[in-house]
């Protein structure tokens, strides 16, 4: 990380962008899986595959990315649409947003295993 970028708002920018990109890359596979529903046997095989531990772990990653993208995106919407108190760019929302995304990931893991 070049020194001029090493501050909270830049990390939030990276988190939001990279999670968005990763989710966009995942989307075609999501649609592919939905397409399998046209053929019951194929869908069942696919769903059995998603029960594998490694696949569940990857799903956990997706859940965390989605939640992170949601919370960082909300921060952007709020900071662009509402005036800010004390000129702080809602920096105080970044770490709690990350924490909330991890909590949601944790809830998913509890449900999954």
């Amino acid at each position: 990380m070049r020194p001029h970028r090493n501050h909270r708002a830049y990390w939030a920018f990276l988190g939001h962008r990279l999670s968005g990109l990763a989710l966009a890359l995942f989307l075609p596979f999501h649609f592919l899986a939905l397409g399998l529903a046209l053929e019951a046997a194929a869908l069942d095989r696919f769903l059995a595959w998603t029960d594998l531990g490694m696949v569940k772990l990857a799903e956990w990653g997706l859940v965390v990315l989605l939640a992170l993208h949601l919370f960082f995106g909300l921060r952007l919407l709020v900071l662009e649409l509402r005036p800010w108190p004390g000129g702080d760019a809602r920096l105080g929302w970044i770490v709690p947003g990350l924490a909330a995304a991890l909590v949601i990931g944790g809830v998913f893991l509890i449900g999954a295993f």
Binding site: H4, R5, A9, Y10, A89
Partner: peptide, 10 residues
């Protein structure tokens, strides 16, 4: 602007 906030930080 991508709201990176580097201007504000520096």
């Amino acid at each position: 602007c991508h709201t990176q906030g580097s201007c504000m930080a520096h």
